[in-house]
Structure formats: C-alpha cells, structure tokens
C-alpha cells in the first residue's frame, strides 16, 4: 500500500510558556515491511531540530523553544509504501515448542522485553491470568495468539476510560481501556510467561484514523518478531506503519517534553492516513 500520513499535534496555552524542551518519536525507519519515501517534520514556532538514535534504534528528534510562545505545532508528513510481511507466521503455524523459550532469553535484544517496565508489571495475579489463558498450549506462537484472543475478550474497548499514563494494573482492575492499554496488558501476559514482547507505536490505515495506534511484537525462535494487534485480535498487516518500538509507551511516546508556564492548555492531535493512487 502506498500511504500518505499527516500527523499534527497542536498545543494552545492559556498564557505564554517558555523553556520548552521536547523529544519526538515521529520518524519511522524502513524495514522489510515498510519503505519510507519521504519524511518532513515541521515545528512552529520554528526551532532547530536535532536527532539521535535511541537504544532500540528508533530515531528521536529533539528541539527547544526558549522564548515565550502561546502555541506549539508539531507536524510530520510521511510517504510510505507497505508490504505484507514475508516472514509473517500463518495463523495455524506451530513453529516453536515451549522448550525453545530458554534460547530466546539468551538473545541479548530480547532481554529488555521479558522484564517488567514502567507501565507493564509481572505480578502473580497477571501470571495467573496468563497461565489460564494459554491452558495446555505448548507452541509459543499459538500461546501468543491465545493471549491475544484472551486480551481481546477480557477487555472492553472504551474511549476515555483510561489516561495516557494508566498502568496495566488499573486496566486489569477495571477491564476496559484503549489500544495502548490492550497492548500493555498483552505485554504483561507475554512477559509473565517469559515470551519476549515489545510495544509498537504507529499508524493504522483505516478511514477512521484520527490518532496514533499501538500494538506489539512477540519474538518467536527462527521466525523473529511477529506483530500482533490485541485491539483487533489479528496480526498486523500492510495497513500498519511502525513508528517506534520499546519496552512500553514510555519508551516511544510520540511527543514528550517539559516547559515552564501554565498548566491550562489544550492539545489537539490530528492524524490523517490516506491511500495514494
């Protein structure tokens, strides 16, 4: 699919703010499933953009606005071509038995993704849920699919039922949430069973797209990282564009920063994903 994506975050402050320092996870990288053709990033008021690559190889842009400003716009424009993943496992594949889990723990890039992290814990109660959900399944990929189905069944999707900083614990307690929470809960379940799982921030090409989306990837021996979307109970296909990966939302927040000034502000975010041709 050839996609054109515009992502605009706008802040209107009730009074001028200053000394604003921000970090952005907005630039996706090309890989086997997506080819980035162009990427533009615009800041208003204008600021010098710098970037670096973080520990998980995501591109991070950062900028500062020292002078007082009453509004801030961060806008990115992206052209990307996506393809179905050639290495995606079929729904009914049984590629790796349980006893192969151990070898994934020795893969150093998996280490961070079997630990608890800021929004994801591995409490005994969560472990219980995970164990019950996989029942007697002994294949790792099939286990992951069962966990995804469980999350999809167990949680009710409800806008505004949680906040951007809601922890998995609270989501499980109230059994409702949004994509971010679905992803966090499934990460918790996977990590309880020591299946390496990482958070993915990105875009979903649907007509209703109006914000960023979140899903996750699990690591399966020989097959590598496999993308699963617990919100929709399906593997991620070519309608998904990956922005960044990390342990959880905290590692990949699209826009994060601090400033000096009022807490009275209004944030509006627009995401448009359009098919080209």
């Amino acid at each position: 699919m050839r996609l054109e994506i515009r992502h605009r975050t706008h802040y209107a402050y009730a009074a001028p703010v200053r000394e604003s320092f921000n970090e952005l996870h907005l630039q996706p990288a090309s890989n086997g499933r997506q080819q980035i053709e162009s990427f533009f990033l615009k800041i208003l008021p204008s600021a010098r953009l710098r970037h670096y690559h973080d520990f998980y190889a995501n591109c991070v842009h950062h900028f500062e606005l020292a002078d007082p400003h009453s509004a801030l716009t961060i806008e990115s424009q992206l052209r990307v071509t996506t393809r179905p993943a050639t290495d995606a496992l079929p729904w009914d594949a049984r590629p790796a038995a349980l006893d192969r889990l151990r070898e994934t723990w020795r893969v150093s890039q998996c280490h961070d993704f079997i630990q608890a992290s800021r929004y994801v814990d591995t409490a005994p109660e969560t472990w219980r849920l995970a164990v019950d959900a996989v029942e007697d399944e002994t294949d790792l990929w099939q286990r992951a699919l069962r966990l995804m189905a469980f999350v999809h069944r167990h949680l009710v999707y409800e806008s505004r039922s949680t906040q951007v900083h809601t922890h998995t614990r609270e989501v499980l307690a109230q059994r409702r949430g949004v994509c971010q929470d679905f992803a966090h809960v499934m990460l918790s379940l996977c990590r309880c069973l020591r299946i390496p799982a990482r958070y993915v921030s990105g875009y979903l090409a649907t007509e209703a797209a109006s914000a960023t989306h979140a899903w996750l990837e699990v690591y399966i021996p020989d097959a590598g990282w496999q993308a699963l979307d617990p919100t929709h109970n399906r593997p991620a296909d070519e309608t998904y564009v990956t922005l960044a990966v990390g342990r959880d939302y905290a590692d990949v927040a699209p826009v994060r920063g601090t400033y000096k000034g009022t807490t009275e502000r209004l944030m509006t975010v627009e995401v448009q994903v359009e098919l080209r041709d």
């Binding site: 000394e19 320092f21 670096y52 500062e64 920063g257 601090t258």
Partner: peptide
Amino acid sequence: DPTVFRPDSLLGVPGLIRAYRA
C-alpha cells in the same frame, strides 16, 4: 535533566543532556 531521565522530576537542568549530546 528532567526532559531525559526523570520526566516526573522537577529537579535538574532541562536541556542539559541535549547540550551534552551536542
């Protein structure tokens, strides 16, 4: 630097790490 290490901390010098990286 609260913008990098502890977003919840109001201590530190915002932007210090940015200057350090540069």
